[in-house]
Each structure stands twice: as structure tokens, then as C-alpha cells.
Design a protein around this nucleic acid. Sequence first.
DNA 1: TAGATTGTTAATCGATTAACAATC
DNA 2: TAGATTGTTAATCGATTAACAATC
Lengths: 229, 229
Amino acid sequence: MPQPKPKPAAPPAEVPVPKAVVSRLSLYLRELQHLVRDGHQRTSSSQLGRLLGFSDAQVRKDLAYFGHFGHPGIGYRCDDLIKAVRKILGTDRDWPVALVGTGNLGHALLGYKGFSHQGFRIVAAFDVDPARVGEAIEGVQVYHLDDLATHAIQQKIKLGMIAVPASAAQSVADRLVAAGIEGIVNFAPVTITLPDTVRQVGVDLAIELEQLSFSVVNRSSANGAEAGE
Amino acid sequence: MPQPKPKPAAPPAEVPVPKAVVSRLSLYLRELQHLVRDGHQRTSSSQLGRLLGFSDAQVRKDLAYFGHFGHPGIGYRCDDLIKAVRKILGTDRDWPVALVGTGNLGHALLGYKGFSHQGFRIVAAFDVDPARVGEAIEGVQVYHLDDLATHAIQQKIKLGMIAVPASAAQSVADRLVAAGIEGIVNFAPVTITLPDTVRQVGVDLAIELEQLSFSVVNRSSANGAEAGE
DNA sequence: TAGATTGTTAATCGATTAACAATC
DNA sequence: TAGATTGTTAATCGATTAACAATC
């Protein structure tokens, strides 16, 4: 009887994680937090799937990429699963964030309440407009863009958000990279090029509406359109 | 010689269009508009691909879902392709948009310059706060949410944006549906349920940062992370 | 035990890539 | 003509779904 148990406790497996799985992970987390707020202690793949419009099989498969979080016959403990997903996403810690651009959108990001709950905190804002530098918005100090690297290093900032006009976005991105930032959310409606050591996510508000407009115009077709998240 | 030419001029083909294709279409459009602004008259699948980080084959395949827009040996005329893509996306017309919620994010959306260039115009804003109703923000009148249906019908509004707290999002969504809206961009960090006659796109700002945080934490792995668009 | 639910495998489905004849 | 580039087909790759033994 050679090797009766070749896999005695398989570690989370060294399979590459599809990026679609990661984006659903955020949705699971959000839903789990709502469930807890509503007093639920446990849930199941079929409940999570129903709430989000996914199949139960997909929910189980997604979670199983990262470990064994559920209990056969029982389901998942919300608290435990939240902890596990936060650890996977990296939101089990605090992330100081730099914001560049304090126009309309910058103001909105500075005032956005949803970040802190997931561990994100804008600790410094940057602008080039002398009228804005020196101000404090929502309790966050606005510095000159030239001082980005100084503050980023001092405060160990790893994430940045770009909320400047499209024409300035690439040069701001370059400065963020030079300041040692490792991930950027770009709200400017332009493609920015980064060294592949730096991660990026692009959010283009007009494009979100375009995707809607397409679905509405081509509604007859089978467009379930739960896109965008 | 029976049926020498069974497909004499195949119409745009009745293949279902993958939604990933539609989201890339918006990126092609944005890039084409930048190319034109920079004085280019033509482009090619390889140039577009290089600019956006896609393969040339993918660009051609995506566009070919909708027709024959290119010229073998030559490439694509930017102007023509822009026109074609706008037609496909439905942004060759004007879209009046309703905004619900005039907090920080609502203000930013009202001031956002990028919408008009793609044919989107916020023509009415809605809130329940008596202090805000009656005001005009960025030239847009703020009405009470109770008057949503009236204005939506009068102004033929088909698209809506939700920028209210999570707790109010579902009820706002229900009202938008009742007002005859056909597509919704939801900025509230919550899953909303809609009849499947109504399209939706969700944008959760914290989730965008979570996706970044995951990529940064798991950077060692092959995470190209050009997600989010 | 019967009922519920997981994690995982195999089967299906869909999307991307590579290759190339047709065209300019 | 030679070089460039499209649209399309076939091959590859990846992601989702269905099914089910294992578990509680």
C-alpha cells in the first residue's frame, strides 16, 4: 500500500487565481458584511449566489481557490469568512492612500465614507494649484505635488488615486511611481502607462454610462448587464 | 454548380456579443478620440492594441463582431471607426440623465466634464433633503425625489445614476424603475435588485481599491492587473 | 438516519490567440 | 511587385457549470 495519502492537507493550491474571481471576492465581502449587519451568523454558497446573481457552484469554486472556509452540511460562518476574505484581499490592515487632484472628484473622494470601513484612509492630498495647496479638505491636508515623494515615503503610502484632468494624468502617474507608490486607481479618462511593477485600476465615469447605453440600445438581445463591479 | 455564393454579403452576423468586447469598445473609442486629437487620420489593430495592452488579433476580432470597418493593407480611418463605434455603443445620440443624490459624489458627477463629450447630459438632479431641493448645482436644478417620475417622463430620461447612501439605494432604484428609467449606474456600495428589463452597472469606489490592494499584496504572482475598465 | 451543504472533478461552454488567405 | 494589414478560421486556453462523494 504505497502512499495511502499523497495529499495530507493540500495547501491553498498553487493555481493562478483568475482576476474575475478576485473581483467577485469583493462582492462576497460586501454582501457578507451586510448579512452580519442584518444579524445573520451563517450563510451558504446558494444564499450568497442568490443575493449576487451567481450560481452556488461558482461561489464555492471561487472561495475554494484560497482554502477550506466552509463546513459541509452547514455552510459558512459569516465572521470567519469575512476575516478570511479580508486577509486574501489585503484589507485586514490599514492602507494609507494618496490623492492627487482636489477638484470636484477629488473633493468627493476625500468625503467618501466607504473607504475607511475597508481599511483605506486618504492621508494626504496633492495639487499644483497654489490656491488649494495649504488648505485642508475633510481634515486632509493639501500639499503641493512637488512634495509627493516626501510624504509618500514618510507616511509609507503604497496606494494612490489620480483625480486630475486627462492631460495631466500620465505625468502624475509617473510622479506617483517615482514616489514609490505600488498601486494606482486612475479616474482620468485616459490610458496611462506604468512599469509592470505597479498595479493599476481604471475608472472612467463616462465609460460606465456608455456600457449602459449599449445595453439599453441593444436591449432585445440577452443582455443581463450586471457589469461594472 | 449549386449555390456558388451562399453568403453574398454577410450582415454583421447574429452572434451574441461578449460583454468583455463591449467594454473594450469603449476603450477603443477613447483611444481613437485621443489619436484624432493628436492629428492621426488612420490607425491599425496593432497600434490600438499596443496603446491599450491588447493583442492586434483581439482588436480586429472585437471590431469584426459589428462589421467591416477596416481596409486590408491600410488599417482603419479614425473618423470612420469613431462614428461606427459610437453608433454601436449608442453614443451617437444625446442621452439625458437623471442623478439621484446631491452629496459629495453627486456634486462631483454634476461637475464632471467628461460626460458631455460622449453625449451624456445630467438634466435633472433629485434629493430628499429640503435644504437641497430648489437649489441649482452646476446649472442643474435639484428637485424632490417625489417629482422624479414627472421629470423623467417629461424629459424622456432613460438613464439614471444613484449617488445616495447604501441604505437608500434600493428604494431609489425602485423609484427610478417606476419612473421608466431603462439603465442605472449605481454608485452606492450595495447590491440592488432590478427587473431584468432594466440594465445596471455598479461602481463601488472601495472595491476598486480592494482590487488594487489584492494585486499589491500578491504582487509576486503574475498579476498584470489592468482591471476595472 | 435524512437532509443539507461543502469541496472537487469532469464536462461544457466561451473567449483569446495564432495563422493565413484575401486585399490594398 | 513587395509590404502591410484586414477579416476569419481553427487551435488553444481559461472559466463556468453540473454532478457527486464526503461530511456534518
